[in-house]
């Protein structure tokens, strides 16, 4: 069940990219607004970027819970 749900989620994510190629973004104020399915890229790459930043901060800023005491 869990695996099926996961598979459906990934298929939906893949399919969600398609409408971007048949749809205009109005208004195109910067050049990147014209990139098809930009939000999918922002979602995926942004999540990876945030994850890396998180790990980086955690590597030097994580302490035991009673650190301040």
């Amino acid at each position: 069940m869990k695996k099926t749900l996961r598979a459906i989620f990934f298929i939906l994510a893949g399919l969600s990219v398609l409408p971007g190629f048949f749809m205009d973004h109005h208004p195109v104020l910067f050049w990147w607004h014209g990139i098809p399915s930009l939000d999918a890229a922002v979602g995926g790459l942004g999540a990876i970027l945030l994850m890396i930043t998180m790990k980086l901060i955690a590597s030097f800023a994580s302490k035991k819970e009673d650190f301040h005491d």
Partner: peptide, 16 residues
């Protein structure tokens, strides 16, 4: 475009 854009963002961030 706004509605689809938000769904794309959620689905791809959710996949990660």
């Amino acid at each position: 475009s706004h509605i689809i854009g938000v769904f794309q963002l959620f689905l791809w961030a959710g996949s990660v």
